[in-house]
Amino acid sequence: MAIAQPLAWFLGFDSLMEFIAFVIAAAVAYQALKGYRLSKERTLLYLHFSFVLIGAGLLVDGLSSIVVLLSQFHRGFVVLYALGYTINFIAQLIAYGLLVFAYLQQTRNISAQFAATAVVSALFFERNAFAELILIFLLVYITAHTAMNYSVSKATNSMLVFGAFASLTIAHFFFLMFILVPIFFPLAHIAQLLGFLLLLGMLLRVNQPS
């Protein structure tokens, strides 16, 4: 997506949704760490670090958009939008890469592990289709594994995890489609928030005193 001439409503809505997502991501990270301390389940530790990165990326991206908005799109500040997106993208890439790595450790798929790690070196400086496709690829892999886990366990927590990553996959598909059709933009944010909330709900269930 070109960053020239972004509409004020677009940046305002984008920032608001990213700040809300940041708060939820921070809650997910906290609950994941709490769950790890209770259970010593390494997947929860990966989830914690992943959502620390996701939350940080969302916060930086949201703040950069606000600065651009408050500057009334001054030429000297518009570049911050691209910078914020770049940081957010790299944070998400590493975060979802960590989760892929966690699942790959369980399956011991070394060749796929190498392929997933290789994409971390990519850098993107504005919202574009290729960047979203990489995130979708990682999320589809995670979603497939969570679907298999749910098909075996039939547990509520497994269902929530599957639903969360399915929602995040849909969210990034909508972000991809937004490049062509603007109406997908708010739908993408809603799907992303739903995914975060489902993960938070799962962690709250896990951390409930027995």
Rank of each mutant, 00 (worst) to 15 (best):
D61R: 13
L58A: 12
A166H: 08
L104S: 05
S151P: 00
A129F: 11
V140Q: 08
L80D: 06
V100N: 14
V181A: 10
G163L: 15
V67M: 11
L180K: 12
R108D: 12
R75I: 10
F173R: 06
Y103M: 09
Q113T: 13
Y81I: 00
L98Y: 08
T169Q: 08
F165T: 12
N128H: 07
I87T: 09
I110V: 14
L47T: 14
A116T: 05
L138H: 11
T156A: 11
L93G: 02
N157F: 03
E132M: 14
H74E: 13
L104N: 05
F89K: 04
I134R: 09
M159F: 14
L70R: 07
V120Y: 15
L63G: 03
L180Q: 10
T156M: 10
A118N: 04
L70S: 04
L45C: 03
G163K: 14
G76I: 03
F137G: 14
F173E: 09
A102V: 06
I142W: 01
F178K: 13
I94W: 02
D61E: 13
F124D: 00
I66W: 02
K154D: 05
S50Y: 09
F114M: 07
A122L: 12
F49G: 07
V68A: 12
S64H: 07
L123N: 08
G163Q: 07
T156G: 09
V119N: 08
F49P: 02
I136T: 10
T86K: 11
F130I: 13
T86F: 13
Q113V: 01
I110P: 00
F162G: 01
R42N: 04
I90H: 14
A122E: 08
M159P: 03
F174W: 08
S121A: 14
G84E: 01
V161H: 12
L80N: 05
L44A: 10
E132K: 12
H145C: 08
I94Q: 03
L93N: 15
S153M: 01
Y96K: 05
S111C: 00
G84W: 07
F137D: 06
V60Y: 11
Y46T: 06
I66S: 02
S158H: 09
A166Q: 10
A147D: 08
S167D: 08
Q113H: 07
V67N: 02
S121D: 00
V60F: 14
G55D: 07
A102T: 03
F89A: 03
N128I: 01
A112I: 09
G57Q: 05
F175G: 10
V68L: 06
I110L: 11
L83F: 15
F125H: 02
L168T: 10
F162V: 01
D61N: 15
L123K: 09
A95P: 06
L99C: 10
L133T: 12
G163C: 07
